[in-house]
């Protein structure tokens, strides 16, 4: 049952991305580009609607002693605003603003079979590997490449 539930969540997530229009970089850029000819506010509605549903329902879920198929919730509890958070999010924003793809839509759009989508995906995976190897976030915090949390 657990497997079915997790699989179904992924499936529903992709349906939401596709129906909302977020698999289309031109539509994302249509929102990000406030100075464009025809500004498209659609992405704002996607964010308000998705985060709104989460806002309304997550407390009810987290009040339960455990999730349905696990012994504990895996929800981050950090509240510190550190340099890696800001620096990493800035790099992500630059890449997102360049092309119009963030990770979820890029993954979903792979089935379009378009070469540029696959190029973006391969480069994104390379970027993820790069951080796994370079450990930039810990270098920023400690000035060295060592893992802070072990």
């Amino acid at each position: 049952m657990k497997h079915v539930a997790v699989f179904a969540a992924g499936l529903l997530f992709a349906l939401g991305l596709g129906i909302s229009g977020m698999t289309l970089p031109q539509k994302v850029i249509g929102f990000l580009d406030f100075a464009g000819d025809a500004w498209d506010p659609s992405l704002a509605l996607v964010m308000v609607s998705s985060a709104g549903v989460y806002l309304l329902l997550h407390r009810r879920v987290l009040r339960r002693p455990t999730p349905l198929f696990d012994t504990q919730f895996h929800v981050p509890d950090r509240t510190d605003i550190d340099a890696p958070l800001v620096f990493g999010s800035a790099l992500f924003g630059i890449g997102w603003g360049m092309v119009g793809f963030c990770p979820g839509p890029a993954l979903t759009a792979l089935v379009s079979g378009q070469t540029q989508v696959w190029s973006f995906f391969v480069a994104m995976i390379a970027g993820m590997y790069a951080e796994g190897t370079l450990n930039v976030s810990n270098r920023i915090v400690t000035g060295r490449g060592e893992a802070v949390d072990g």
């Binding site: 529903l12 349906l15 939401g16 596709g18 308000v48 549903v53 198929f69 919730f73």
Partner: peptide, 17 residues
């Protein structure tokens, strides 16, 4: 579409936290 994304995310939280 946004609501479906939110529901999918809630579903994952509910299922395996």
């Amino acid at each position: 579409g946004g609501a479906l994304i939110g529901l999918a995310a809630i579903g994952l939280l509910f299922a395996n936290g």
